[in-house]
Amino acid sequence: MGEFNEYKKMLVEFIYGEITPESERKFLEHLSICEECQRDLREIREAREILRDMEKEKEYPPPVVIVEGKERIPWAAAIFLFLFFMFILGFKIKIGDNQIQVSAVESQDIYEYLADVSEKGINFAPTLKDYENYFNEINQGGKK
């Protein structure tokens, strides 16, 4: 990449008609003998032509962006959906040979049970031991 010198600066001003008459005269004089500037001018005009084509076709459909490799996964949405389905369909907890199905309604029972047996109230995170105790009570014909 060549140095962005005085003539390249003038070239940009010239292209956009933002050049002073004095600079324009100086630039055109230089342009007539400088092959590099002639090439730069030609390339920049071609680039502008590409952009003009884009503007002519206003109603183009937008491009589709894809991510290299795997598609982007909306993790927050995925986690939300997983928890939502867990809540609706329920989930199984296996403790030893015992297995309990916990659904939205059942989990409410568990929390009520936990509230009964614990002074902590219902706003604490139950442990597997809590579930085990709950399950044992069910088997012994206790709460449910």
Partner: peptide
């Protein structure tokens, strides 16, 4: 994410 762009369908 290293985005790649696919050319739009239907445009020139």
């Amino acid at each position: 994410d290293r985005v790649e762009i696919r050319l739009p369908e239907g445009s020139s």
